[in-house]
């Protein structure tokens, strides 16, 4: 083929310059309206009355209690789902059995359930009228409107995050390396720790990152089971809502700005992982 022919073929897969300009303008305008301005609004509103007011809103006892509760809930829910994700992906990706596709669908189920319904199910199980209601009252165990239900609801909504990141990754990596280690006499646990774990660590970190962002930010499910007791069962997102409903916009946006920082840090780490480890991190839409 002549060089002129090659050049024409290349140009043929490229959009004309005016189309590029039009599409980029539309994209930037759309993302500005939907993503960038809302993000900016949080910080400008938080600082509308100055740093001191914003800082005071974050340091106030109910806010501190909410921050502590959010961290505690994430510290329980995220490792729980990481362990679940590792178990599920080991069983599913490293072995062949019937009903595998169905099992994956079941694991994905929480993603297609409204967060409010996720909260409702635990009310129906642990509430006063629920399955275990009488028994729990008799034994003076508080689950609903207390930490256990908040943790459970959070685990439910973040349940698939780590598993669905690890399953395709482990499936792609196959079992050859594990079989080699086992045939050389390594124990199952040693094989997992020395062969599998290093291979999937970045994928695991990626899943944990997204899981953590959702765990700390969950609103609907937690709102239904928390009971909204200030200083006791309010997580950060619930605290934001209470302040906002009380017409304390500055306070609401100050706490919201903290959550925004969490989101920005999550996105920076996520992007870094995707650039540094393109083969293992983030090939799935969540």
């Amino acid at each position: 083929m002549s060089s002129a022919g090659i050049r024409k073929a290349r140009l043929a897969t490229e959009d004309p310059i005016w189309v590029k300009a039009l599409i980029l303008t539309l994209v930037v305008a759309f993302l500005t309206l939907v993503l960038i301005l809302p993000l900016g609004v949080v910080f400008t509103q938080a600082l509308a009355k100055g740093w001191k007011v914003a800082w005071a809103a974050v340091r106030e006892p109910d806010a501190v209690a909410a921050i502590k509760l959010t961290l505690l809930v994430a510290a329980i829910a995220v490792p729980f789902n990481a362990v679940f994700g590792l178990c599920a992906s080991w069983a599913i990706a490293k072995h062949d059995f019937r009903g595998k596709a169905f099992l994956i669908t079941l694991i994905d189920l929480p993603f297609s359930v409204s967060p409010v319904v996720a909260g409702l199910i635990y009310v129906l199980v642990f509430g006063a009228q629920g399955w275990f209601g009488d028994w729990l009252i008799d034994h003076d165990i508080k689950i609903l409107f207390a930490l256990p239900a908040i943790v459970l609801a959070t685990i439910f909504v973040t349940f698939p995050f780590v598993a669905r990141e690890l399953i395709p990754l482990m499936q792609e990596q196959g079992v050859a390396e594990e079989e080699a280690a086992l045939s050389l006499g390594a124990s199952g646990l040693r094989t997992f720790l020395r062969v599998t774990a290093p291979n999937v660590r970045w994928g695991l970190l990626y899943g944990v990152l997204l899981c953590n962002a959702r765990a700390m930010g969950e609103f609907g499910a937690v709102s239904v089971v928390s009971g909204h007791i200030r200083g006791l069962t309010n997580t950060m997102p619930l605290h934001v809502q209470i302040l906002y409903d009380d017409n304390d916009a500055t306070g609401a946006f100050a706490v919201a700005a903290l959550l925004c920082l969490l989101a920005v840090v999550t996105l920076v780490l996520k992007t870094t992982l995707e650039v540094a480890q393109p083969d293992v991190a983030g090939r799935r839409a969540h």
Binding site: L31, P38, L210, G217, A252, A256, L259, C260, K270
Partner: peptide, 17 residues
């Protein structure tokens, strides 16, 4: 990176913003 903001930003924050 910004496209993933809705995955990372708590929904209540998005709501009030």
């Amino acid at each position: 990176a910004l496209v993933d903001l809705p995955f990372a930003l708590p929904t209540a924050v998005a709501g009030i913003a």
